[in-house]
């Protein structure tokens, strides 16, 4: 069973259905104890960094993510769900993240923002197998931009280079939305689910 952490607002239905295509049961939950029972975990996130962190703290999501990381089972962070794995975010003030990866999530330097639409990813992780040259759907204005030596980083460029996906041990996370990335996204999720 795959558990999706429900800690705020936004479209979780697409994620629920996209992960269900793997054949696994999918549970939406905001309870830390329920979340931990799963075989794999999804940490979504939309909206502003600070607002997301606040909503996450309100349901003890920090503890839930920590449990998931320590369990060694696969974790998939999506969009702001990836961003909060970094040290901090500079959207509408400075906010501390969960700190699994070093770096600050800051405003992209590009003439037109948000970065909305389908873009290429310089894929490095084997989870991209078969979709290395596909485009994925992004919607964000902030991004992590630094190298993370201890992790495998895939980059995208829009105005400047930023982290499109990052993986380390049992954590895999993407700035783009695989659940909105059509067949390419479905294939990526399928590849990830093979780790379960």
């Amino acid at each position: 069973m795959i558990a999706i952490l429900d800690y705020g607002s936004g479209n979780l239905r697409s994620a629920q259905r996209a992960f269900a295509l793997t054949g696994h049961d999918v549970l939406l939950t905001s309870k830390r104890s329920e979340f931990l029972k799963a075989d794999a975990f999804v940490v979504p996130g939309v909206g502003a960094y600070g607002a997301c962190m606040k909503q996450l703290e309100e349901i003890d999501g920090r503890g839930a993510v920590s449990d998931a990381v320590n369990s060694g089972k696969p974790i998939f962070g999506i969009c702001v769900g990836m961003q909060i794995l970094f040290t901090s975010g500079s959207e509408k003030g400075k906010h501390l993240g969960l700190g699994y990866f070093p770096g600050d999530v800051s405003l992209i330097n590009a003439p037109v923002l948000p970065h909305i639409g389908w873009n290429d990813v310089n894929a490095t992780s084997p989870i991209f197998h078969g979709v290395e040259s596909e485009k994925f759907y992004f919607v964000h204005s902030y991004a992590a931009k630094n190298d993370v030596e201890s992790a495998q980083v895939s980059w995208t460029t829009y105005g400047e280079r930023f982290v499109a996906a990052i993986s380390k041990e049992n954590i895999f996370a993407t700035q783009f939305h695989p659940e909105k990335s059509g067949d390419a996204g479905a294939k990526l999720i399928e590849n990830w689910a093979k780790l379960i």
Partner: peptide, 25 residues
Amino acid sequence: FIPLTVGGGIRTVEDVNQLLRAGAD
């Protein structure tokens, strides 16, 4: 599984919440 925008008749934050919860992006 591609992004969906919904418009028409949205007047409140709660209208938006319902649409996003239903599956609009």
